[in-house]
Design a protein around this nucleic acid. Sequence first.
DNA 1: TTTTATGCAAAGTATTTGCACGGGA
DNA 2: TCCCGTGCAAATACTTTGCATAAAA
Lengths: 145, 145
Amino acid sequence: MNKTDEWLECLQSNGYRITAPRRVVIETMAQSQHVLNPFDVYEQARQRYPRLGLVTVYRTLEKLEELHLIQRVHQPGGCQAFIGAFSGHQHLLICVKCGRVEFFEGDENGIAELIDTISKKSGYKVKEHWLQLFGLCNQCQAEIA
Amino acid sequence: MNKTDEWLECLQSNGYRITAPRRVVIETMAQSQHVLNPFDVYEQARQRYPRLGLVTVYRTLEKLEELHLIQRVHQPGGCQAFIGAFSGHQHLLICVKCGRVEFFEGDENGIAELIDTISKKSGYKVKEHWLQLFGLCNQCQAEIA
DNA sequence: TTTTATGCAAAGTATTTGCACGGGA
DNA sequence: TCCCGTGCAAATACTTTGCATAAAA
């Protein structure tokens, strides 16, 4: 089963209805390798379903985030961008030029150790962590050269 | 020399003028241990300088960020918040309840190694990285208990 | 048939810009 | 004095809400 169908099923099993607008938003997000903001999604999805409203995009992204199917991506220039989430904790590698995103399994041991050390030192109860790398993807490096 | 004066001097040596509004914004930011958004800064700084305009806060924060005296903090709930920057690369530990921030020197070797591995694997040219931990500070843990 | 979801329009926030005046150097 | 910086007001951008209609189950 592909990602789109999985997401649709997840929506449905959480009591949400499957509709044409939701389908195109989900297809857009599920297939994208790039960070997309709500307007990006709107523009892309409208190519297949022109009646789509921007409000519906906002509302659908909200639900997908709530179901952990997508995650917010924070970038130096702003944070209202999203990318599909993977199950399990994943770290991000983001191309600052084109928005392409790769996921990588962090060196979880090393990071867990680090977090442990920091917790002890600071007294904080650490609940979440983010590791994001920014750089240029292969393609963008080639274009610049 | 304290942080406020250092920042003022930095502004000046970069061709910017020192004014009363800038002074209070800088004092507010330089002294805060908490993540502050532009409106927070406005409210706090206005206690000492009531004529201050919100627009000036935006413009001053912009300059401080440009001079790397403050840095943007990205949180699950939004990103338009700032905290004083330290020299050298620092990682953040943020209290999700009160906004208090601690800096820590990452295990730079471990992270550098990780970044190196990821670069080789992905082909990306990594230029920047963020590591942010979220949790509860000592005080907020006590309040909840 | 019943209830949820949609899209429009409007409202609400957040941020930026234009401009005449005021204050730093 | 000269020019940069300020604050107000307005413009713009972004996001959310109200509501009548349309569509899913």
